[in-house]
């Protein structure tokens, strides 16, 4: 019996040696450990032996069977692994090929600036207000302390529609509206970004351009508050190191009025072509709301004070994106537009 078992082991070793496909493994299984296999056959040949031998050889055969099962299992496992490896190999792709994505469109630099300005002021409690582009002379000029025949009208050559209506020359027109429309005469904190129109067209002027107007009406507002606000605004729009300078100026709807310069963001104030060697760039007009404007808006200037400011959106866009000519903003060359197809960098101010 012992010899039989040994020869079976030798036979299995020889048979299993070169087995490497699924079919051969199955055959091996059937031949040795199948229901009618050689192990079963050997086991059944024990039935005529005595109890002691039965037990001894039975154990031995079972041991051999376990050996065979282990060998076959391993064969199966490694075969499965090889098959998987082959499959994975076959499925390998070129990851450098472009992904399936919609070709992204773009957002116009002008509107990108508006979003930034809006977000900044909304974070400080300002409301964003909209106003009509077709305005009345009354809102655009008269209620801003620019009566008919006032020389300040010369600075803004106006597109008139008729005697009463015009294309607004400044978003300041929304100041007058906001004060009038606030029937409860509660404090005001608002900005109004939008389009304005003037009869003027060259490399630095477009007959249509953008402005944002800001207005605060409250109690005990001062020029120092205005400066603090514009310092933050300038840092947000042009960079953390931006400084702000006030120069006295004149606007009919503010008194005192200031011209607001910012330190040149390109040269850091050392002087360059952008700032015409002065280190400063004129950015905003601002001032304390003129008492006449407050009165006309229904706010008693003895009780209320406030500041207003205005700046050009096109210039801000030109500064941020290094656009050399205002007309590029309005030409809409697709090759220009497509350059504005990603997220803006966030300028965090402390």
């Amino acid at each position: 019996m012992k010899d039989k078992i040994q020869s079976l082991q030798t036979q299995f070793a020889a048979d299993s040696k070169n087995v490497d496909d699924r079919m051969a493994i199955q055959e091996l299984k059937t031949k040795y450990i199948g229901k009618k296999g050689l192990i079963t056959e050997l086991m059944s040949s024990l039935k005529d032996m005595d109890k002691e031998d039965k037990k001894t050889y039975g154990q031995l055969i079972n041991q051999v069977r376990t050996e065979f099962v282990t060998v076959i299992d391993e064969k199966e496992k490694s075969l499965a692994q090889a098959e998987l490896d082959r499959k994975l190999q076959e499925e390998t792709i070129d990851v450098s090929l472009p992904g399936e994505k919609i070709k992204r469109g773009s957002l116009h630099p002008f509107n990108r600036i508006i979003e930034d300005v809006e977000d900044f002021f909304v974070s400080m409690g300002y409301d964003v207000v909209d106003g009509p582009e077709l305005e009345t002379d009354e809102n655009c000029f008269q209620r801003l302390n620019v009566p008919l025949g006032h020389p300040a009208r010369d600075a803004q050559d106006t597109f008139y529609i008729d005697e009463e209506y015009l294309l607004r020359t400044q978003t300041s027109a929304v100041q007058a509206r906001t004060m009038q429309e606030n029937k409860e005469k509660t404090p005001i904190r608002m900005i109004c970004p939008g389009k304005v129109y003037r009869r003027d067209d060259d490399a630095t002027h477009s007959h249509q351009f953008g402005q944002v107007e800001g207005l605060v009406v409250d109690k005990d507002i001062s020029l120092a508050d205005l400066k603090g606000t514009l310092e933050l605004f300038a840092k947000k729009m042009l960079g953390e190191n931006t400084k702000v300078r006030f120069r006295p100026s004149f606007f009919p709807f503010t008194e005192p009025s200031v011209e607001v310069d910012v330190s040149c963001f390109k040269c850091g104030g050392k002087g360059c072509t952008l700032c015409k060697q002065t280190g400063w760039i004129e950015l905003l007009g601002a001032g304390m709301v003129h008492p006449n404007v407050l009165s006309m808006g229904g706010y008693d200037p003895k009780v209320w004070s406030g500041f207003a400011f205005g700046t050009g959106l096109d210039r801000l866009a030109m500064f941020r994106y290094a656009i050399p000519d205002i007309r590029y903003l309005y030409t809409n060359d697709v090759r220009f537009l497509e350059q504005f197809a990603r997220k803006d960098e966030e300028n965090v101010i402390k």
Binding site: I102, R104, G105, L329, V334, A341
Partner: peptide
């Protein structure tokens, strides 16, 4: 813009 259009002014 996400759907592939370019904004004009």
């Amino acid at each position: 813009a996400d759907l592939g259009l370019n904004e004009t002014l």
